[in-house]
Amino acid sequence: MLNSTSLIAEARTKLEGYLLKKGLRRSSERFAILEEVYSRDDHFDAEELYQAMHQRSFAVSRATVYNTLEVLVDCHLVRKNQFGDEDNTKSRFEKSLGRQQHAHLICVNCHRVMEFCDPRLQLIKNTVGNMLQFHVESHSLVFYGECSDAACVARTKAAAEHANLQEGKTA
């Protein structure tokens, strides 16, 4: 596994080559966004990335963030996920270089995203690909349920109690 510094350097090199190949500008904003993405270990949406850039006092427009994320997805430096949140149109992103393929667990209450790897997933992918004579390039597996995080459980109970109180007022 590469360390953070060499991973960012490899990502920068890959982005530079992609931009040259596609005839796109090699702007400082694109590379700053790449570095912000590769400094994170979470799943984020474009707005969270935009806010993080501004907290770092890096003036970049929302349009630049959105457009750069699409470039990073196209050159396989970032993975785009649709987790079926309440807002089904919201994409969540994660860095992809140097990361093994994994699956996700999503809490339906707090929306926390957890990752897990299981070698049996690779076996299933290979078996299905061979059986159907299909070259599987990637896969996505998401489990939805309730996490056992104490803060999430307390928040869920409080929301249920609040809903019950509201029902009592309208009844």
Rank of each mutant, 00 (worst) to 15 (best):
M1F: 14
L2F: 13
L2E: 15
T5R: 13
S6G: 03
A11Q: 01
T13S: 08
K14C: 03
K14F: 02
K14H: 08
L15Y: 00
E16Y: 02
G17A: 11
G17M: 08
L19R: 06
S27H: 09
S27Q: 11
S28K: 12
S28R: 10
R30L: 04
L34T: 03
S39E: 14
D41N: 15
D41S: 14
H43Y: 15
H43E: 13
F44K: 10
F44S: 09
F44P: 06
E48L: 04
Y50Q: 04
Q55R: 14
R56S: 13
A59C: 13
R62G: 09
A63V: 10
A63S: 09
T64V: 14
V65T: 09
Y66V: 11
L69H: 05
V73M: 07
D74P: 00
L77A: 03
V78H: 01
F83G: 00
K90N: 07
S91W: 05
F93M: 02
E94Q: 01
G98M: 05
R99H: 03
Q100G: 09
Q101L: 10
N109V: 03
C110S: 04
P119W: 00
R120V: 04
R120I: 01
Q122P: 00
L123P: 00
K125V: 15
V128T: 12
N130P: 00
F134Q: 06
V142L: 07
Y144G: 08
Y144Q: 11
Y144N: 12
E146V: 13
A154G: 05
R155D: 07
E161F: 11
E161S: 14
A163Q: 13
A163W: 08
N164K: 15
A171H: 07
A171S: 05
